[in-house]
């Protein structure tokens, strides 16, 4: 990969807090014009990875680069926009003042009205930040993240506290940004958000990078697929079939999980000519995520026990 296309990277990074290893030899790249979703349960190392990339902390081992520069250098930071999860901004300043203040740090900021339009905060500009609702505050924080026209955007749980409409609007802005070539690093615990937005997903578990790839590649970690249909077939009989991993009934609906879904399907259709409303679904990112992190944890525990 050429150096220009990598906007930020962790190279064999180790970060420890006392006895706890928060990141354990993690390699991660953020490429031009992609949205990378960083997933992991709380304490998996997402926040540590982001603070290292932002230069808020230094790694104990390995190398961190932001636009091929030291993440603490101003030249690198001027290309970066940030939205942190729990930053309380100055409550008595007006929204337009907050945007102007943050814009003043950047060499080529966007015009105020353009920032307001993209973040959907036109009506909030004359209001004091402290008087806004939680969702409105998130939108203002998003405005501050994009006001410097950054090439790389770090968003830590950006849609927490947003209602459905505001979340959809923010997703639209994010897609527009990526279409313009901006790279985005998104940490989220809404898997549907990652599923809908991410070009690439990186899953952290206990400080290790346990999976990385497109949403489809991550989903493919779960070989299992799921059949749902309306059928009166006997549950015990289905559980007797060797291809069936799991079978359960939800009212008149039947749900069957299997690694060899085609074989099960043939037998099902043959066994019940009245079968209706058939659905076959690959596991979503949520199932894949659970499986990947559980596997990774089990491996770590086995290693620790050995």
């Amino acid at each position: 990969m050429t150096r220009q296309s990598t906007r930020a990277q962790l190279h064999k990074v180790v970060k420890r807090y006392g006895a706890v290893t928060a990141l354990d030899h993690v390699d991660l790249q953020v490429r031009r014009g992609e949205l990378l979703a960083l997933l992991g349960v709380n304490g998996a190392g997402k926040t540590t990875a982001v603070s290292l990339l932002l230069g808020l902390q230094r790694p104990d081992e390995g190398r961190v680069e932001l636009f091929d520069l030291d993440p603490q250098s101003l030249a690198a930071r001027r290309r970066v926009g940030v939205m942190l999860q729990d930053a309380m901004l100055q409550a008595v300043l007006r929204v337009d003042e907050l945007v102007r203040l943050t814009s003043s740090y950047y060499p080529r900021p966007l015009p105020l009205q353009e920032v307001a339009r993209r973040a959907g905060i036109e009506e909030l500009l004359p209001r004091r930040y402290g008087k806004l609702s939680g969702g409105q505050k998130r939108r203002v924080q998003f405005a501050l993240a994009i006001c410097g026209d950054p090439q790389l955007l770090f968003l830590d749980e950006p849609t927490v506290g947003l209602d459905h409409g505001a979340r959809t609007a923010m997703w639209k802005s994010l897609r527009e940004l990526v279409a313009r070539g901006c790279s985005i690093v998104l940490t989220t615990h809404y898997l549907e958000e990652a599923e809908s937005l991410a070009d690439r997903v990186a899953v952290l578990s206990r400080g290790r990078l346990v999976a990385e790839g497109s949403v489809d590649e991550i989903r493919a970690h779960v070989a299992q697929r799921r059949i749902r249909c309306i059928s009166e077939l006997n549950l015990e009989m289905l559980r007797g079939w060797p291809e069936v991993t799991q079978a359960r009934r939800d009212g008149e609906r039947l749900e069957v999980v299997s690694d060899e879904i085609e074989a099960v399907l043939r037998r099902l259709l043959a066994a019940d000519p009245n079968l209706r409303e058939l659905e076959v679904r690959r596991a979503g990112l949520a199932e894949a995520f659970v499986e990947i992190t559980t596997d990774a944890e089990a491996r770590t525990e086995r290693k620790e026990a050995a």
């Binding site: 808020l56 001027r78 940030v82 930053a87």
Partner: peptide, 15 residues
């Protein structure tokens, strides 16, 4: 305590 200092440190505020 409120994280504003952390945010400012991440921004390209002049030294």
């Amino acid at each position: 305590e409120h994280g504003l200092l952390t945010l400012k440190r991440a921004l390209p505020m002049p030294p």
